[in-house]
Amino acid sequence: MNIYSQFISTCARPLGVWILAALIVTAGCSKADQTYVKYNNTAGSFNGNAIEYLQSQPGVYDSMLLVINRLPGVADSLRSGSYTVFATSNRSYTIALKNINDARRDSVPALPAVSFSTMDEAVLDSFFCRYIIPGHITTQQLYDRADGLEFPSMKYEYKMQLQLRATNASGFLGGGPSAILFSDMRKSVFAVNWVRVYTNTVDIKTSNAILHVLDPGHNFGFGTDLIQALNRD
């Protein structure tokens, strides 16, 4: 068959063949695109309360549980109350404790080192409660709030801000999992003064609470404010 005959034969193929091929290609592209659009980083549900969830992962939340058990009423609240919990890993507490004790050592006069078992209970309580917000707040509730929402913390009604952000994945800008940008507003309306941290897992549903897991590199207490509060005296 010469080139002209091949061309005629190709062009003469039924229109349905071309339509079917186009549909296959389109379906393939659509499926690939949705991999990014629909991907999320949720961890599903847990059959137990918030405290039991933290206890179910030994070696991850031991420091957080130690603090919870020190503070009046917090453990009972997280067993039965309706809350949103921003979970902080052991590493977050390790980072914070190093920074606290480095500052205490360098102060004039130098101050003795502390631990989360011995530091001032009232100060620890006020900072820890910033990670607990009354009610259930999921990523779904933040979707249509481009500028985020403010929420009062447990006990002290200290204002925290939650904003949903799309992360990047595989070179696809904004196509990765949704994350919550969790901000200590530091009693300021100007975002430049806020201290912020991203979640790396969201929307863990327990029997009484919603948990969002913060990045393990987060400095518990949101940095210098906790250090200053502990070293004030």
Rank of each mutant, 00 (worst) to 15 (best):
S107T: 09
F151D: 01
R79V: 03
T167A: 11
D106G: 08
P112V: 06
F190V: 12
V213G: 00
T84L: 01
F182A: 00
I19G: 10
S183Y: 06
Y83I: 02
T167M: 14
K159V: 12
L214E: 02
S63E: 12
S89C: 01
L226S: 03
P177T: 08
G59L: 08
N40K: 07
T118A: 04
T26G: 11
F46E: 01
G174I: 06
D106H: 10
A229C: 10
E157I: 03
P109I: 11
Y131D: 01
G148C: 09
H136V: 07
A21N: 09
K155T: 03
T167P: 02
S207C: 03
F86Q: 00
W194F: 07
W194K: 05
K38M: 06
Y93T: 03
F46K: 04
T35N: 14
D106K: 09
G175H: 06
F151H: 10
L230Y: 04
R145F: 15
N208G: 02
A191Y: 04
A209C: 09
A22G: 15
S183L: 05
L211C: 04
T167E: 06
R105W: 05
I210A: 01
V67Y: 00
N219G: 04
L149Q: 14
F151K: 08
N193F: 10
S82P: 02
Y93D: 00
R104D: 03
V213F: 03
S9G: 04
S117M: 06
S126Q: 12
Y156V: 08
F182I: 04
R104E: 08
A87H: 02
G171P: 02
S30E: 04
N40I: 03
R145Q: 15
S63H: 09
I3E: 12
K98S: 13
Q57I: 13
F151R: 06
L97W: 01
D215H: 12
P72Y: 06
R79T: 07
Y39M: 14
L211G: 00
D125Q: 11
A75H: 10
A96I: 01
N69C: 05
G81W: 01
A179R: 08
A21G: 12
D125G: 03
P134V: 06
A179G: 04
V189S: 15
D225N: 11
H218I: 14
D147S: 15
T118M: 02
C11I: 09
I180F: 05
E157L: 09
N200R: 08
F116H: 07
I95T: 10
C29V: 13
A21F: 11
D233K: 12
T139M: 05
L162Y: 10
Y131W: 02
Q34H: 13
A122G: 03
Y131H: 10
C129F: 06
L164K: 00
A32I: 09
